[in-house]
């Protein structure tokens, strides 16, 4: 396993797109959280909003874990795009073929890409933890573990985004097209999710069948639904929290999609011509 990672590292360490996208991601996480932090800092010095914001400051421990995880979630598209570029490059330049010819098994070839998706998710989590600690202490509060589970949900979301990216890359194999489809799919899933939500309400009203908001069980919506902005007076700024009673189902769906995306990616590489 380490040997395969070493080979992967030889491939990507000098790749400019890898360094640039990853740098954007690291800086982006810090910057986006800082932007929201600044808004709350300004509000806390404004006499009209001072009292409310101090009470709900989302960057205090332990709310900071939820806040930073939620905000950083919007940047997970960057490692996903990076993975699409890295994987589709192997097909564009036929190095996928050469790797197999030289003696990698097909399972090893795709296995290490899935491992890379996992490691990028792990790196994202480390960034979120560092950012959370930074803003938590900066808000003048002391460390708390409560709500740290949100960091775990962030990891699942990152893994989910990354593995869907790997799946699209191995299925489509062309960089621009795969990135395009990834974005189109994100938009399309939102529309489908809303239609399913409307249907869910109809089912509930007409037949008294309550399955929750079914739109939330779709691949990307499910992992999005694990994270929400902490309850605050500016609720309209962000998505409402998931209804608690369906959280378990959503969590199971996220695991299901993670396994499904990995399985389909492996199948595609192992079975198809390269």
């Amino acid at each position: 396993m380490l040997h395969l990672l070493k080979i992967e590292w030889l491939k990507i360490k000098s790749y400019k797109a890898f360094i640039i996208i990853l740098s954007f991601f690291c800086v982006g996480i810090l910057a986006s959280n800082y932007m929201v932090y600044s808004v709350f800092s300004n509000l806390s010095t404004n006499q009209d909003t001072q009292v409310v914001v101090q009470e709900f400051n989302p960057f205090k421990f332990s709310g900071v874990w939820q806040t930073v995880s939620y905000i950083s979630g919007y940047l997970l598209i960057l490692p996903a795009i990076l993975l699409i570029v890295l994987v589709t490059n192997e097909f564009t330049y036929k190095t996928s073929r050469q790797n197999i010819i030289d003696g990698l098994s097909r399972a090893q070839f795709i296995g290490v890409k899935i491992l890379l998706a996992f490691l990028l998710a792990l790196l994202s989590v480390l960034l979120v933890i560092a950012t959370g600690l930074f803003f938590g202490f900066r808000s003048g509060t002391s460390f708390e573990w409560t709500k740290f589970s949100n960091v775990g949900y962030f990891f699942l979301k990152a893994l989910s985004y990354n593995l869907i990216a790997v799946l699209m890359a191995v299925m489509i194999r062309r960089t621009g097209f795969a990135i395009g489809v990834y974005f189109i799919y994100m938009g399309a899933e939102n529309i489908i999710a809303q239609l399913l939500d409307v249907w869910s309400i109809k089912l509930k009203n007409a037949n008294n069948i309550d399955l929750g908001s079914m739109g939330d069980y779709l691949p990307m919506s499910a992992s999005d639904g694990l994270l929400a902005f902490p309850n605050n007076p500016f609720k309209e700024l962000a998505k409402n929290a998931m209804p608690t009673e369906y959280f378990g189902v959503t969590l199971i769906m996220v695991f299901f999609y993670i396994i499904l995306a990995s399985g389909l990616s492996i199948r595609s590489v192992v079975k198809r011509d390269l």
Partner: peptide
Amino acid sequence: NFYHYLSAVKNLKITAAIK
């Protein structure tokens, strides 16, 4: 079939690592 952004030596290091 080689990594277009890598030199001959770096490409061959990958080949050697795989083999």
